[in-house]
């Protein structure tokens, strides 16, 4: 696998007022409930659809306190695609199980593999495919994504969202993607290109949220690439 990583800009985690006054959410913990839901949502966006089997590994503070904080139903809510203030959040596990999803939670006793006390490692699969993502909940509902496995690729992003991933059989998408970011004035903090078995993955760590129009233009590429916006 060939990897090219370019670090393009300094990373600030909390860019919006609403990262510290917000989110509006179902209690009881922003890092263990809202943040956990956000990590589940990353898995949902990577998998695109409902899995048959979910395995969640918890580390450190997540491992010690996930039961009390509702971390379990929060992560499953994310995997189901619920919003943080969706009233179905506390019932997510029942809802998932009623749809035939097999769920396992594991409390790991060692240190977090990515060096953060609020770490969750989520694995989703069905009969034909699987994804894995390791997320950390840094406080106030904000998360970082430290590791992703998808389509045989393995990624270690800087962490802050948004992250845009395109997977395609075409090796010439980078300029087109950069053109769209430039058009909508979205700065790129970091970018990585990977190649494996004739497939190409383009990953961009972005500095600001994408507008609805920018998203639409990216999603228009869906017929030639699997477009994932985290």
């Amino acid at each position: 696998m060939n990897a090219v990583t370019l670090k393009e800009k300094k990373n600030i985690s909390y860019k919006s007022c609403f990262d510290v006054i917000g989110p509006v959410m179902i209690g009881p913990s922003s890092s263990h409930t809202a943040g956990a839901l956000a990590i589940g949502l990353v898995a949902n966006k990577l998998f695109k659809g409902l899995p048959k089997r979910v395995v969640v590994k918890y580390y450190e503070s997540f491992a010690e306190t996930h039961k009390g904080h509702g971390t379990d139903f929060a992560i499953i809510s994310g995997i189901l695609g619920f919003a943080t203030d969706d009233s179905r959040v506390p019932d997510a596990i029942k809802i998932a199980e009623s749809q035939g999803i097999d769920i396992t939670f594991l409390e790991e006793s060692g240190d977090s593999p990515v060096g953060h006390p609020n770490t969750a490692d989520i694995y989703l699969e069905d009969d034909s495919r699987s994804i894995r993502t390791v997320g950390i909940s840094v406080g106030g509902g904000l998360i970082k994504v430290k590791h992703i496995e998808i389509d045989g690729f393995s990624l270690n992003p800087q962490g802050s969202l948004p992250i845009m991933i395109a997977i395609s059989s075409r090796n010439n998408l980078e300029l087109e993607l950069r053109r769209i970011f430039k058009k909508y004035e979205v700065d790129i903090n970091n970018s990585t290109n990977l190649e494996k078995d004739g497939k190409y993955l383009y990953q961009f760590d972005l500095d600001s949220q994408l507008s609805g129009e920018a998203r639409k233009e990216l999603e228009n590429l869906s017929d030639i690439a699997n477009i994932i916006i985290l």
Binding site: G22, V24, G27
Partner: peptide
């Protein structure tokens, strides 16, 4: 309300809401 899994606004966190 937060402990009862009601809707709150995190400021900056839910525990400190």
């Amino acid at each position: 309300v937060n402990a009862a899994m009601g809707v709150i606004c995190a400021t900056p966190t839910a525990g400190a809401s």
